[in-house]
């Protein structure tokens, strides 16, 4: 099932989640929190899930952000997200600020509905720059629905990669993982 078909049936949830997203304050981080990236044993530059663990209820919706840690300047990303099909389902993916310029980023979402989400996001150059300045930012937020109980893991797949404006690879030295516990 492609992400387009997925979104078609999940629009109400998407809208609701979007509403929540737009109305919340920006996240602030306490660096002594175990969930802080500095405490995840990741060698920057790295990609990780935030929060890395989520406890939720069956049929509940929740989200996890796809975060970059001390990334170099980039212009595009392919985030290959592996999740446990049958445990959770992906409702939508929303671009966050990492690839935001004066223009909204261009994004393509492809969920094969078998446990792999290919999320392509591109910075649209503006009059200022053709790529961002890098750093630690959320690349996107993935909205899930828990569809069965038990624990499942979220991983970055091997196809995950970033490119700069010259179409050269942007190094990612380590990848974090996430865990979802559904009761």
């Amino acid at each position: 099932m492609s992400i387009f078909n997925l979104l078609r049936v999940r629009i109400p949830v998407l809208v609701l989640c979007s509403f929540i997203f737009f109305t919340c304050d920006d996240a602030t981080y306490d660096l002594d929190n175990p969930n802080d990236p500095e405490n995840m044993d990741l060698e920057p530059p790295a990609l990780f899930f935030h929060p890395s663990e989520i406890d939720t209820k069956l049929d509940s919706s929740f989200s996890m952000q796809l975060y970059g840690l001390k990334l170099k300047p980039a212009a595009a990303a392919h985030l290959d997200i592996r999740y446990e099909y049958g445990s959770v389902q992906i409702d939508s993916v929303v671009a966050d600020t990492f690839f935001q310029s004066l223009n909204d980023p261009f994004q393509i979402v492809d969920d094969d509905s078998s446990g792999t989400l290919d999320y392509f996001i591109y910075l649209l150059p503006d009059t200022v720059a053709e790529m961002n300045e890098g750093g630690t930012w959320s690349l996107a937020t993935v909205y899930f629905t828990a569809i069965s109980t038990g624990g499942s893991e979220l991983l970055f797949g091997e196809n995950t990669k970033l490119r700069d404006a010259n179409n050269d690879s942007v190094a990612v030295k380590s990848f974090g993982s996430g865990f979802i516990n559904v009761e």
């Binding site: 979104l7 078609r8 629009i11 909204d104 980023p105």
Partner: peptide, 15 residues
């Protein structure tokens, strides 16, 4: 913000 609806692909440019 156009991200909430992934059913459409948008390209924007300010000049």
């Amino acid at each position: 913000s156009l991200s909430y609806d992934d059913s459409k692909i948008t390209l924007t440019n300010h000049r």
